[in-house]
Design a protein around this nucleic acid. Sequence first.
DNA 1: GCCAAAATTGTAAGCGCTTACACTCTTCTT
DNA 2: AAGAAGAGTGTAAGCGCTTACAATTTTGGC
Lengths: 342, 342
Amino acid sequence: MVKAHRVTIQDVAVLSGLSICTVSRALRNLPNVSEKAQVKVSDAAAKLGYKASSAAARLAGGSTGSIAIIAPTATAWFFAQAVEAAEEVFGDSGFDTVLISLRGKSSVKRKIFGDLLGLSQRVDGVLLLNVDLSESEVALLAASGLAVASVGMTSVPWDNVGIDDELAAWQATSHLLGLGHWDLAVLSGRETRENSVLTASDRLKGFGRALKDHHLTVHPDLVINSDSTIDGGRKAMNELIAHRSLPTAVFADCDEAAFGALMAMREHGLSAPKNVSVIGIDDHPMSWFLGLSTVAQPVADQGAFAANLLVERLQNADAPNEPSNHFLDTKLIERKTTRRQR
Amino acid sequence: MVKAHRVTIQDVAVLSGLSICTVSRALRNLPNVSEKAQVKVSDAAAKLGYKASSAAARLAGGSTGSIAIIAPTATAWFFAQAVEAAEEVFGDSGFDTVLISLRGKSSVKRKIFGDLLGLSQRVDGVLLLNVDLSESEVALLAASGLAVASVGMTSVPWDNVGIDDELAAWQATSHLLGLGHWDLAVLSGRETRENSVLTASDRLKGFGRALKDHHLTVHPDLVINSDSTIDGGRKAMNELIAHRSLPTAVFADCDEAAFGALMAMREHGLSAPKNVSVIGIDDHPMSWFLGLSTVAQPVADQGAFAANLLVERLQNADAPNEPSNHFLDTKLIERKTTRRQR
DNA sequence: GCCAAAATTGTAAGCGCTTACACTCTTCTT
DNA sequence: AAGAAGAGTGTAAGCGCTTACAATTTTGGC
């Protein structure tokens, strides 16, 4: 048996009786290739099971065949869902997915932006999931030559998919207000300059707008910073219970934080909706079980949608249409952790 | 301003006054480089901010600087945790992480193994998370030239980290038995030939062994196949409730399935431990909240540990010590979903 | 039918790195 | 002190692909 030799473009060229150059063009569907040649090449490539070496392609100035997903974390429910959905789209389109989790470390983000050239050497595009970027970082990325798309980011010069975070928060808060609550606290995702969940500020805005609609104002003491995790929600709620006056209702800006809040309440012998009404955003699979009222959002859809936009950009780099911004619908789901305030 | 030109090894060579070749060797810490040269090169590289092009390196026969993580899914709690922990280790060691989620699709696995050569062209190593491999696939991988490590896989010719799944299941089951239950059902992760959670069969074994220790036998009707997800557990439990006689206790082989089981019970007006005692494995963050008895396992630790082993192999390819197999400890956590059977 | 323009195909020069091999100095031997 | 062995360094040939640009063939107009 002959030594396993990688099938190269050369082999395809020989088998199809054409030059390497023509093969290269045919394989990439470039113009100026006759149909005959096109067919011959695809046949030969198929017969040989040829797959271009992404390393060689990249080195010569072509594409790498991989896309990076950058997310604040890969463990939170939202991100795990979105990452997997996007990975599926990328995989089906023949791209490798490079996962980069910021893990709350500004150092990771700094490393990436400090070596954007390096990144662009290794991937063709970047999918950002709720990454809090400074203006200069946005500019850098936009100028990097990388294709970019994002989930949950607004006013950004590339395709974006998300929900209307302000509206979602407004829906949740209005639900509480409609139930007669007027003493509300909010567990709001941390918004550090460094890296955080961008949606948090919009959600806080929505909370504020709902209050305003009811001629109420936001009391700073009742805006609690909270990591968007179960533990974060728990700590935030504990703080609220321990150090501040207990409101009659709490809006957590994601379900996991709401879970944590419920936990904290339980630890203090409190429960929802008896002592405090609680509502979240997400419709996490556990929410139904816990009876958590929430505002549902399609998560996997967002990831897949954005991934598709990115792939399309990559595949027809020639059609430079405007960056688009898509909003997916959210829906209030009333369950058992919220009830009318007497 | 001069056009941004990638800093190449050539630049480093010129600045350090040495040949490209020496620079290349120095940068990779190969032998036969004088200390003087070593210093000059690192200085020059640092000053220039030089980073080798992984594409060029790979093409020339060097390493790619990336590692693939292959997991049955990226959304399940266990995998999300392990993936992130491993990604952190890889990132800190300068490797890119390529995420490949099988998503229960045998086609994905087939694609990978059908083009292992292609994979080995794109990554230096592979971290397998509970991937159910056939013997031939194991052989292929082992022969692929890729460095391999895994989590939760046994009798495999590469480094592995896991828990003693059989023991964990035994602990959970024994707890139930010790409480006086003898009519037990098990929600067991699906073990299709294609791709599934490998640990499932070991956990089933542990369940069986515990029964045997108590001179009981496993009743096939009470072994329910279940996806290792909330929804899977829910369906499995629904099936159990609807079509089979209700046991006094249920062992779910992961916490998420246990959550689903609890949900199903709730839907039928049942609750744990009143009607049925329920125990899982994992110690998911929600388990405490739900009072779920379980067997805790360190998840991020497993991912990080295995990732470190892999990185070490990659970094000293010269020291070919035996593949090692590490077991991390598990611990029974008794909470409120299990109680003594009267 | 003849010639310019357009369409197609081929040639060859890299992309930035690794590595076999040749070469130049140092060290030890004896 | 001459020669062998070894350490350190350089030369040059690729790795498999893309892409100017040159060469060739086809097309179309008159």
